[in-house]
Write a protein that binds this DNA or RNA. Sequence first.
DNA 1: ACAGGATCCTGGGGGC
DNA 2: TGCCCCCAGGATCCTG
Length: 274
Amino acid sequence: MPELPEVETCVRELRPRLVGRVMRSAWSTVPRQLGDQTARQLSNFVKDREVQAITRRGKYIVIELNRGILLLHLRMTGRLYVDTTCKPAPDYARAGFVLDDGRESLYFRDVRTLGTIRFYKSIADAPELLNLGWEPLEHEVDASELKQTLEHRSQAIKVVLLDQSLWAGIGNIYASEACWVAQIDPRHLAQKLTRVQCERMCTAVPEVLNTALLRGGSSLRDFMSPEGNYGSFQKEFRVYDREGEVCLRCGGVIKRIVQAQRSTYFCPKCQKKR
DNA sequence: ACAGGATCCTGGGGGC
DNA sequence: TGCCCCCAGGATCCTG
């Protein structure tokens, strides 16, 4: 579910609730979410370690402890929140981190169980972070830099936007939205983007993500922040989930197609290949 | 090398 | 009501 704006919203709300607190133990009910690591190892790892910082890299959440890090990915339906420890655990809580005196826990709720939880000695030891691309809100990308990077990419631009090694944090919603803002046909081959189109994309990506972040992200089905808030950017979607509706720019009709097994929404009238 | 497909899961919604 | 199919803010394998 969550893309960069939702993950960033999550991180910002978790910070005041978690930094300075000490983890006592952890549990997990879905072994697959831990990869090769076990729930027992996870619990031993976090035991008596203080949360020093919470950061984000792409769609990954990094909980920095006084020794080591927790690396979380929410995938489609993951959600993190701090609440009173209760037994049995809340519905769909797949993992929990017991805090301080045990009265509160950090819960990892995940209906589809596709989310992941890992622990490492340091950020540098996390292989998941090695191949991530630019941070869209931190690194200002220059059109020639983008054009050069896209030179050997023979896939459609919208599919390339989903590749986390280009810009990290863009997902299916914002890839469609960015193409609309940049007035680029999502089917356009990445390597054939003109310099002008690259310029527009370099502007569109951070603009779309920043606006969404200001709205607390998008809540389509079940995104909810740690504090229980829904995002509101879905009210401002210009193409995503708007099949058959009118284009706000040109009056055309928004179309839905499938690219790389994911829905793409765009306006065939004003999103041109050139 | 790369594009497309299947896979991991659960649940909601629409059609019949 | 129930059943079946499709769909879902992601990413990683496997195949041709």
